[in-house]
Amino acid sequence: MRLKTIAKVILFLSLGLFLASRLSNGTLSFYIHPRFNPLTAVTAFIFLLVGLIYAYQHRQTILHGAAAHDHDHDHHDHAHAHDHDHSHDLSWLALAILALPVLLGVMVQPKPLGAAALQNREINTGLLASAPAPSGSQLAVIPTAGERNILDWLYLFRASPDMAAFNGQPVHVIGFVYRDDRFAADEFMVSRFTVSCCVADAAPIGLIVRWPDAPELAADQWVEVTGTFLAGAFNGNEMPLLIADEVVITEAPAQPYLYQ
């Protein structure tokens, strides 16, 4: 009883501290959309508060091992089932499950979704049907050519009937390297995930890059690609291909995902 009460207090405090630390070092954006940051901050604070109140209300149990409302678990093994409430009976198994989010969060190094997660998902390159349909307002805010990210380009592809219209336009994008057996030896995809709520809905998008040294790039490596578009085809679909002039190895950006 006493140990379990202490374990519960630790659970609440650790959940609060875990969320707060993820928020403060920026890795929270590996998991959920930044619009939830204020909500997460409030939640972390409430967890800490609940933990402290829980500890204070159960201080007798924690300090002396005997609660003011002790349920006397020592007499007959089963007879007390109907006399007392069991609101505090969580098994050690249940407590272990409750510890899993923080344990996994601390033990497994925080990392945004990468090429490994992409294998199970539909990939939206230029023209594939499930690319998000752009609205008028989204097209209006798309920046000039040099500053467009992968999602901006896909919006423009969707809005344009003619893939040759992009020929010669300068491109500079950041993403991670993805490749599977549909790709030729000198091709790879510079990819990002788009996220609308949390990583559970992450959808990969990308541009097909032609680059002679493509085989030397490791999957999952973040790269900056500079080049121009040339109308072509990938996997039977017509789309602008990115003919790279330069591919520079880089670090993952602080906001690894793109937001629709």
């Binding site: 939830f36 609940v50 989010p101 996994l104 497994v108 559970a200």
Partner: peptide, 30 residues
């Protein structure tokens, strides 16, 4: 090297769902 690719992906998605949902469960519990 316990954190292989699959475990990494699993953990990221699991924490994504959990962190998104847990404020609402806390609110409901209150």
């Amino acid at each position: 090297r316990f954190a292989g690719d699959r475990l990494q992906t699993f953990t990221t998605i699991f924490l994504g769902i959990f962190i998104e949902a847990v404020p609402f469960l806390l609110a409901g519990s209150l």
